[in-house]
């Protein structure tokens, strides 16, 4: 049995909304698991059930070999970092960190030692006497993490903790969270709707949609090998291009071009997915793109345009190529990196 085990966990709210459907998941000790999905997909509900802040309608949650369904949140030995940090506004930073320890009846010297260690680790030693209202966003974030670390819990739960920060700080804190987790080695679950955050932080990633885990795997597995249309569209930025097509006799006909020798026996209506970064310019390529707009990011150019049938399409090329607005590009798919999904079920077929 792994460290945290979710077995057929279901959450139905009193008003009948089914937020999480029979979800099963195992997380190993020390692993950094990220739940990613659009808002309202049930990822936060799942996290809150692990924390004990939501009742479990059906199923079991085992933590460290113990069934914790009915265990009070205060006794689960989990720590959570909230989106708005939920720092205690009337206590200074020191007491914010110490509060959980005090409630556990730990003696004063040990508390002081632990708080000082955590403060040092997070570089907030200078602010220990300040109230949260006197701290900046990044500092508050650190205090919130300090409050989790200081208790030395079995598991860290992060509920979109970076979404209140500005873009630059978010990237910085993202790195720090990852480093910190590696240093402390505590099992962590991180909930986010930001796929870049998810990709960069995760050891393993669970892509959740409509209360179901669509795919579970390492970030690169999920990027390279999305199992459904939803996962393919959700992971990767800019988003994967989708084209309608028809598959018959291992030949895909789509939007004015054909791909032959496709490795599947599936026949019928399909959706073809091509990542913008898996294209290259050649003469007489499969795809003809009329360029509408070029976003120059420096390292890359994002080229937006339309195919012959007015379908929007995006192509990503190195930043040193100059592409004129209004020009016509001929593109090929690199190394057969395309994905074919059953149009009716959204399942991957190739």
């Amino acid at each position: 049995m792994s460290f945290l085990d979710l077995k057929n966990v279901t959450k139905i709210y009193p008003n009948g909304t089914k937020a999480v459907h029979e979800t099963s998941l195992s997380i190993d000790e020390g692993e950094f698991m990220v739940f990613v999905g659009p808002s309202g997909c049930g990822k936060s509900t799942l996290l809150r059930m692990v924390a004990g802040l939501e009742d479990i309608t059906e199923g079991d949650i085992n933590l460290d070999g113990k069934l914790i369904n009915e265990v009070d949140p205060s006794e689960r030995d989990v720590a959570m970092v909230f989106q708005n940090y939920a720092l205690y506004p009337h206590m200074n930073v020191y007491n914010n960190l110490a509060y959980g320890l005090k409630n556990r009846g730990i003696d004063k010297e040990t508390i002081e030692q632990k708080v000082n260690d955590a403060a040092k680790l997070l570089q907030i030693s200078d602010y220990l006497q300040r109230k949260p209202s006197m701290l900046s966003g990044g500092q508050r974030q650190r205090v919130a993490m300090g409050r989790a670390i200081v208790r030395n819990p079995k598991i860290f739960l992060f509920d979109e903790p970076l979404s209140n920060l500005d873009a630059k700080l978010r990237i910085q804190m993202r790195l720090e969270i990852k480093k910190l987790q590696q240093k402390v080695g505590v099992t962590s679950i991180f909930v986010t709707h930001d796929q870049v955050e998810a990709m960069t932080l995760a050891d393993r990633l669970a892509v959740i949609n409509n209360g179901i885990i669509e795919q579970l795997g390492t970030p690169i597995e999920i990027y390279d090998n999305p199992k459904s249309l939803f996962v393919a569209g959700f992971i990767g930025s800019p988003q994967m291009n989708f084209l309608d097509g028809n598959l018959k006799n291992k030949i895909l006909s789509a939007e004015g071009f054909e791909i032959k020798d496709i490795n599947t026996d599936f026949e019928g209506e399909v959706t073809l997915g091509i990542r913008p970064e898996h294209l290259s310019q050649t003469e007489n390529g499969l795809i003809n793109l009329n360029v509408d707009l070029v976003e120059q990011l420096g390292s890359d150019n994002l080229v937006y345009g339309q195919l012959k049938n007015k379908k929007d399409f995006c192509y990503r090329c190195p930043g040193n190529q100059t592409i004129e607005k209004g020009s016509n590009l001929s593109l090929n798919i690199e190394n057969n990196k395309y994905y074919i999904f059953d149009k009716s079920t959204g399942k991957r077929v190739n």
């Binding site: 989990v78 959570m80 909230f82 205690y88 509060y99």
Partner: peptide, 10 residues
């Protein structure tokens, strides 16, 4: 969240 955080803090 204040209540929830306090709960988790015991």
């Amino acid at each position: 969240e204040l209540l929830e955080s306090a709960k988790l803090d015991g």
